[in-house]
Design a protein around this nucleic acid. Structure first.
Lengths: 341, 341
DNA sequence: CGTTGCTACGGGAGCGCTCACGTCGTGCCG
DNA sequence: CGGCACGACGTGAGCGCTCCCGTAGCAACG
């Protein structure tokens, strides 16, 4: 054991302050219903002994843990390239710590990990869960539903059956995509292509839908699938230039994809935005500002989405079953004009 | 409360299996000292009732939590640009889950957060801590020492007083830097510059030392300070070209810095590696492989470092105070030759 | 001045688990 | 065949806390 000396208990504080455990407990938990002089005495005893409540003992009786699990299920290495997750994490972390909740991070890769996560969530170690990046075929939501634990999803979950009333936070992917494509059209571009994200994710699918909303049944060769990565963007752009050399506008499903596209365009001697206007999605700052030329993109407030997820979850946790379940939130996007379009 | 139905207890399982609590407990915790038929009966009862041990109750008596805090103190937004942390996290996560430990993530920014973290660590919620990215003036180590909680640091801590026996995992920054500079020299470069990282971090300082080991008292104008970011790399490279137009080799303190440097070199019409050979540090794959030209760099196994940190910590946790404290580990680096040098 | 109604505080129970110990049965020895 | 040792299982206590309820004190009321 690494316990230096057994830490002081409520009992010890009570003895020192000359009151009962119950009173100390009351003071420690806010101090309602205890008269000022006593509160002061107890506070002092707590300080003198360096008392810190034993969370395990507390949880045992309250059945609360003041802890929330964050599940990031992304078998791909995307987490490590895309600042997206890190930013959401920051938002979540801020909101949770503001409400004295802890963040338990669950990274998963592969099937057996899913079972592990499900077991953990069902195990009642945490009060709720924040779950990310579900693919259409992801077994996780089902398992989570089985765990009967309040959950807020990051991004609209894409599965069709059951759990249609899942609470999620997302940005207006479709609307943002429309804005992007309209902007390109407004620049007089007529051969506007779309490099998609992985279409088994709703964010990517919704952006494609937004593109179609504006373009209608355009040349299908202008749509090329990719995977949200720079390398994928390069491949897609190369393919696009081969198929449709007359392309004059590109809406990339995210900034990283746009990054790859820009690279290929430069290699192939196309000027951006003169020959081909390019627009991304996300506005992850270190990326968009440092491309050459700087990237016009659709901005979503990622950190705010994280905060919001945490806030929604905490609200259901404190509200209890009686309170109305909060509904999902879809944040607006804004077009950020830079040099590339 | 969100508790659906009160979950089954040890007692319930015991009743169902027709044994005592103690026996169930034994089975749940490995099954030593219980005869096979009984083990089977208990296992079945557990399965039928869907029993999951109450971690809080267990912790209350064992004083273990099977949870480890990961503290990332990086006020800068570097976390969100540099895949470094994400990769370490992955390594840590893998190792922890392999040993059924949970990862509690503590993100800090600013002074008051430090106090919060210290309180949490001292609060005995976790068995140990993994702490990252300390700057020289960081108050955290002192606070952590006060918390009397087993800790492993990521990267050699840089403070001088006390805690000289801190356990850490790092890579051979100095040796790696030497290799890099020697490689440049081996290419016949004579005007080899170094763009440093933030020198209040030991990793950056050590790399500078490695550079000096090889270069001796070279032209001090060849050393220019930066901050591990692409933008910083750009600024530094620009300054360098102004000061020393005859520079023919650049050792950048990390890949992101090299990325910025490459960008400026291209803008200024210098060919890489013909005119200026460039070499980075870290080998964060998505970056190094996608630069133009691809980046020669010093590779460190970041994920492995994370795994190692977790392993060291777990070892001290299971070993107890009696066991010998594991000593710090410094991993070797390898030079990865690509196109830029 | 007795009664009521409140609030401030104390006492007891119990959350679900593990661990030390007690008890029982079995096998082996002399 | 009696004794003992050892391994398998049960029992009780207690980890540190919160919550329910009981009691004491006090003000206000008839």
């Amino acid at each position: 054991m690494s316990e230096a000396v057994s830490r002081p208990t409520l009992e010890a504080v009570a003895a020192r302050a000359g009151v009962s455990r119950a009173t100390v407990s009351r003071v420690v938990n806010g101090g309602d219903g205890v008269r000022e002089p006593l509160v002061e005495r107890v506070r002092q005893a707590v300080a003198e002994l360096g008392y810190v409540p034993n969370q395990a003992a507390r949880s045992l009786v309250t059945r609360r843990h003041d802890a929330v699990a964050v599940v990031i299920a992304e078998p791909e290495t995307r987490i490590f390239t895309d600042p997206f997750f890190a930013l959401q994490l920051r938002g979540i972390s801020k909101e949770l710590t503001a409400h004295d909740n802890q963040l338990v991070l669950l990274l998963t890769e592969g099937r057996d990990d899913h079972a592990r996560v499900a077991r953990y969530l069902a195990g009642g170690h945490v009060d709720g869960a924040l779950v990310f990046s579900l693919h259409l075929d992801d077994p996780l939501p089902g398992l989570i539903e089985g765990a009967k634990i309040p959950t807020v999803f990051g991004g609209r979950p894409g599965w069709s059956d059951g759990s249609k009333d899942a609470v999620y936070v997302d940005c207006d992917n479709r609307g943002g995509a429309r804005d992007a494509v309209r902007h390109l059209a407004g620049l007089g571009r007529t051969r506007i292509a779309h490099i998609t994200g992985p279409l088994d994710q709703t964010s990517a699918a919704d952006r494609l839908d937004g593109y179609r909303d504006v373009m209608g049944e355009a040349d299908p060769r202008l749509i090329v699938a990719s995977d949200f990565t720079p390398t994928g963007g390069e491949r897609a752009m190369a393919e696009l230039l081969d198929r449709c050399p007359d392309v004059d506008g590109v809406f990339a499903a995210n900034d990283l994809t746009a990054l790859g596209a820009l690279r290929v365009l430069r290699e192939r001697g196309r000027r951006v935005p003169e020959d081909v206007a390019v627009i991304g999605f996300d506005d992850v700052l270190p990326v968009t500002e440092q491309t050459a030329p700087s990237l016009t993109t659709v901005r979503q407030d990622i950190e705010e989405m994280g905060r919001l997820m945490a806030r929604l979850l905490l609200r259901t946790l404190t509200g209890g079953v009686s309170a109305p379940a909060p509904s999902s939130v879809v944040l607006p996007t804004t077009l950020v004009r830079r040099a590339s379009a």
